[in-house]
Amino acid sequence: PGLLEPTSCLVRVPKSASTLGIAIEGGANTRQPLPRIVTIQRGGSAHNCGQLKVGQVILEVNGVSLRGREHREAARLIAEAFKTKEKDYIDFLVTEFN
């Protein structure tokens, strides 16, 4: 009892600007095993959406888990999710729990 149950939530970020506008740190085999949001750029899609916060850890992108992926691979997955024309949004599964 008293232990916080790690909760995650799904955030849908519409591609409302030409950039996503987040900086991420972390990935497999580093001190930060899952990518964490360290910056949100004003005027980017993430800032416009208003639901992503600095410090949140990204568990999944469009349903694809980032667990066990190196930093560059995780970054590439997010970049491709933003570039693809198939969807006009990106779904992030995030948690405050680090």
């Binding site: 900086a23 991420i24 740190e25 930093h71 970049a79």
Partner: peptide, 15 residues
Amino acid sequence: REKRLTLPPSEITLL
């Protein structure tokens, strides 16, 4: 003595 596993810091990527 506690064996400390030191992992490297990660790089930061702006997306």
